[in-house]
Design a binder for these strands. Structure first.
Lengths: 346, 346
DNA sequence: CCAGTGGCTGGAAACGTTTACAGCAACCCG
DNA sequence: CGGGTTGCTGTAAACGTTTCCAGCCACTGG
């Protein structure tokens, strides 16, 4: 018993006195005589048989596993995506493998290539940067892939994008509408796709509002809480009346710094984030944030992937792209400076 | 080519003009003639060969995949564990499958049973409740399992526990030491292991401090932000001078409610949480929290599991249990009411 | 020069399934 | 009563690897 004592279809066949083919058929619900069915069922139950998924996959060529690769499991945005994806894939009978690439491009490529090892039937990937090598690897991937993020035009791969250009613009216009004029911007790395797009939205909206772009009000840093706090410290000398942040984590970090310096939010400075993650509601004051539709994107990506798998759309068929519209969620952190609530007892 | 055109060891053998056995040997770095080695390597590269992990697993009996099942991916505590586990398993050459059970017992059992399908070589599970059925299933599991959490004595399974009884007690004593006397407690469900233990710690510490347990100051609810906020609303009528929460999410929710009602933290009410997750540092004011060693527990669990796997310790060998000591991390949310900083300008 | 040795190699079996195919009995109908 | 149908069953091949084993060749040492 080289197997470790695990019962197999063979043990069942022996015990029930039938062939392995019959066992397989009974267990997969195909026709069999009353008598046979019963004997097999009983033998399987007595032995505590569990089908070997590996053998099954080898034969069938499918693992019924899908992979989701994201830059950072710690970021609530991706958690939201995971939930949405999970809901769809679970319903379709697939297991979901999660992979955190820690935002390193090499890891992303490795995941893409690993589709070739047939460990999973398909992949949803959320790349933070998109290099030529990414595109090359995407095209030659050994199985269906859906990208969550913006792909250059012409790349024949399904994708689901967020309109973060428009999203950033909405936030800036909102800040302007509440009377802010020195709107600082804490952004992620400028060489990432999200970083680049948010920058574009920021500039566009500033122009629309008749404000001029002032590079002293802009900081590029990493997408996490500590970076947000540090960036805000640097911005303090510029005395902004609003800080727009490229995600909620940055916004939370920034708010933290501002409050620690005795500034009031929103009376002295407004703060807005992006993603509308759980963090935005949890922050104090609750953060205004732009919902880029993380759940929606996750759900949609999963659907696209399943469609490729189940309907076996010929690999070359036209790639589909969906864009989730952004939505501003206004909370306390950007109440107008002239709002009655801002009148403090002091 | 029923395979989908994927190159296999057979295609390589044909192209290189050698047997499949030689291909396998070359690719696995075993001895071969210079000439053979080179031809195989080249053929493999030209075809873009990637070994089929499924076939390999079937033959080898191991998938080099491990599973981590946790109640909730959204909770930063589990994220910390995932990171720690990942670090260990990745170094050992294992892939990690993540599974969110959403705290439903049936799902936990399903994961445990699914070890039998040989999809992964071992399992780390973080059960929220432990029923007799859990124990039964744990014992008969088809592969090595490590439990993160408290197991009743005598269950022959490796486990890593947090001392949340002691942890809760530390927090309560700290609140008492800073002058608080009406210490409310927002706890998770009392029929969960963590919920039960934290309750015990709370009661013990109260007694030590000479305070009496007052059930009007205690709320049992779910382990998330919204529940914390709702619980705090209910507690307001009791005018506590401190709120101890069974995790950081509850604490954040509670702080939120308190601040929204115009109470000052820590001047009017102190707030303390547990887990010392990213949330605690991110909150405003930064939350005092008890670090229950999530990373440490994750790391340790991974090590135990790997040890079982690699050293093939005979299944019956003595189960090992580790306990991670709690550690109080004091932050702004529990500064003593008499602290000079608490004197406001007003 | 021959037996022995050692390095490489190929054939074939094995891992646990699913499934095409053929065999076989029982039955129905003409 | 014979030929066809029907319903079930078993044999064996296949999925893509790894690995045991035996064979081959070229040496080496006596």
């Amino acid at each position: 018993m080289p197997n470790g004592g695990q019962p197999t279809i063979v043990s069942i066949a022996a015990r029930a006195g039938v062939s392995i083919a019959s066992v397989s058929r009974v267990l997969n619900g195909q026709g069999a005589r009353r008598d046979t069915t019963e004997r097999v069922r009983r033998a399987a139950a007595e032995l505590g048989y569990v089908p070997n998924a590996v053998a099954r996959s080898l034969k069938g060529g499918r693992t019924r596993q899908l992979t989701f690769a994201m830059p950072d499991i710690g970021n609530p945005v991706y958690v939201a995506m995971v939930r949405a994806i999970q809901a769809v894939t679970k319903a379709a009978g697939y297991r979901l493998l999660l992979h955190s690439t820690d935002a390193v491009a090499e890891d992303e490529l490795a995941v893409l290539r690993s589709l070739g090892d047939r460990t999973s039937d398909g992949l949803i990937i959320c790349p933070i940067r998109i290099t030529d090598e990414h595109i090359e690897t995407l095209i030659t991937a050994a199985g269906p892939v859906v990208v969550i993020g913006s792909l250059p035009p012409g790349v024949p791969v399904d994708s689901v994008r967020a309109d973060s250009v428009a999203g950033a613009a909405i936030a800036v216009r909102h800040l302007h509408a509440t009377g802010r004029r020195r709107i600082a911007f804490i952004n992620g790395p400028s060489d990432t796709v999200p970083g680049h797009n948010r920058d574009e939205g920021y500039r566009t909206a500033l122009a629309e509002c008749g404000l001029t772009y002032d590079e002293r009000l802009v900081v590029h840093t990493d997408f996490d809480i500590d970076s947000g706090a540090a960036a805000a410290r640097r911005l303090l000398t510029e005395a902004p009346d609003a800080v727009f942040c490229a995600n909620d984590q940055l916004a939370l970090g920034a708010a933290h710094t501002l409050l620690a310096r005795g500034l009031r939010i929103p009376e002295d400075v407004a703060v807005a984030g992006m993603d509308d993650s759980a963090l935005a509601q949890a922050g104090w004051p609750p953060l205004t944030s732009v919902d880029l539709g993380s759940s929606e994107r996750g759900r949609r990506a999963a659907e696209l992937l399943l469609d490729r798998l189940e309907n076996a759309a010929e690999p070359g068929s036209a790639p589909r792209t969906t864009t989730a519209p952004p939505r501003l969620v206004v909370r306390g952190s950007t109440a107008p400076a002239t709002d009655p609530r801002s009148a403090r007892s002091a």
